[in-house]
Design a binder for these strands. Sequence first.
DNA 1: GTTATATTGTTTAGTTAATTAACAGTTTAA
DNA 2: TTAAACTGTTAATTAACTAAACAATATAAC
Lengths: 136, 136
Amino acid sequence: MKDSQLVTSKLRQIKNTLSSYLTKILPNYQITPITMYTLEFLRKNPDAMAVDLADEFGLTRGAVTQILDKLEQQHLVLRKPHPTSRRSIQIELTEKGTTLVDAILDDYHHEIEKLFTNYSEEELAILKQLLDKLPV
Amino acid sequence: MKDSQLVTSKLRQIKNTLSSYLTKILPNYQITPITMYTLEFLRKNPDAMAVDLADEFGLTRGAVTQILDKLEQQHLVLRKPHPTSRRSIQIELTEKGTTLVDAILDDYHHEIEKLFTNYSEEELAILKQLLDKLPV
DNA sequence: GTTATATTGTTTAGTTAATTAACAGTTTAA
DNA sequence: TTAAACTGTTAATTAACTAAACAATATAAC
């Protein structure tokens, strides 16, 4: 079997492992994957509009409205008037939302980093270089 | 930033890329991710019982019943009497099901393998070795 | 400038995929 | 022999999404 096939298979396994980590972590925070992703996207894109979220996740605008409703009920985000466009809204992460998403990402990333405990510094550096060649 | 963090971030990107590939491919085959995974699992585990599918995917037995109902309607699997246990069923991939899952995996894997077109044989070999160290 | 078109977010009704809980039949353990 | 556990199904319910219509606003065409 070719190395490209073996690496492909390994990447699929990694994908499953990461998914299972998230599935394990999120219930501790009473949050679903899509609301977590929403918070993370807003953390990285503070100026994002609702339609950007819809595009990012391949959802309808109606679905995003409902996700924001839930996040607002949990006081994790706040809808505010948009500073420049009156047909849009400004979606603000609350302090509670910011703290939450940071804690979740911390947990999640630490769990993933445990996968590398038996790697040397040099191996990690090479792995990083090789993965950086991926057009993702 | 430490390499373990950078690699972690890259693995998350890879996970998203793989997910989007699947999302793009599956509609061509009129199938959902969970039914695709079910077919793939049955392909690799011909003796699997319904309860094994539930365990594998973290679903209830009732959910698996419904997934199998759909797959049976599409003539992709067949429920047969189990050879040794009368309270269980034997889930058989039909020829149509086998052909379908093979075609999907072919598509999917080829799409992933395109990510490595700018890798040398040597780089791929090293990447494979390094990923094999992962406990996944 | 006015008008037509497109964009943004919301609402409502309906669909889909899942859960929960009860059940029947079968197997295993006491 | 009886009790407990296991396997799969069913029916009712819940949660997350879509589709389609809508109101308000912004952009483009002329």
